[in-house]
């Protein structure tokens, strides 16, 4: 199965590029000129995102390094353990929406400590793979188009994260427990 998945990942991008270029060329589009014209926007878009991302990463950095995240963790740990969430993965549920690299580091530690095929290893893998870094996505996607009023998007994103975590615990206990 891993071979098939690797094969799909390896082929996807080249196939899409070949497909787009061939159709464009067939339709008589000046492929090189138009490609470059589009690609140049990538630089400006990237630069525009920097201030938004910087602001968000600084706030997350302060919040984590000060120990404030650990305080919240202490508050939620007991109720979360009550509903059957193993205590080793509880920090992951708070880090995951905030920091992609932070969460990946945490999962790597868990997998190294408990082994990739342990229950904790499988659960942490499922949690890491099943949701995205909500604050990163909000910052980058809305920052790129200068949205100031995000309305309910953050709340809905966090609801999705919470449901994803509970679903991960539930399905892992069912399948691997």
């Amino acid at each position: 199965m891993i071979e098939l998945i690797n094969l799909m990942s390896e082929w996807a991008i080249p196939v899409v590029i070949f497909f787009i270029l061939s159709i464009s060329f067939y339709k008589g589009i000046k492929v090189y000129d138009v490609f470059v014209e589009g690609a140049v926007e990538g630089i400006a878009t990237g630069i525009k995102i920097i201030p938004y991302l910087l602001a968000m990463l600084v706030a997350i950095g302060v919040f984590r390094s000060s120990g404030a995240l650990d305080l919240i963790l202490d508050l939620v740990a007991i109720p979360l353990q009550r509903i059957g969430i193993p205590k080793q993965v509880i920090p992951l549920s708070l880090i995951r929406p905030l920091s992609g690299t932070g969460a990946l580091g945490f999962v790597t530690d868990l997998i190294n400590q408990h082994g990739p095929d342990s229950f904790i290893g499988r659960l942490a893998s499922t949690m890491q793979g099943s949701t995205e870094t909500t604050f990163y996505v909000v910052t980058v996607y809305f920052g790129a188009i200068k949205i100031k009023n995000t309305r309910h998007a953050i709340v809905a994103g966090l609801v999705a994260d919470l449901v994803g975590f509970i679903a991960a615990v539930f399905i892992c206990q069912l399948v691997f427990g």
Binding site: I17, L21, V34, F35, G38, E41, G42, T45, G46
Partner: peptide, 11 residues
Amino acid sequence: MSLWLGLMKLA
């Protein structure tokens, strides 16, 4: 991003 914006322009 530059790669995909170029390809999307073509597409």
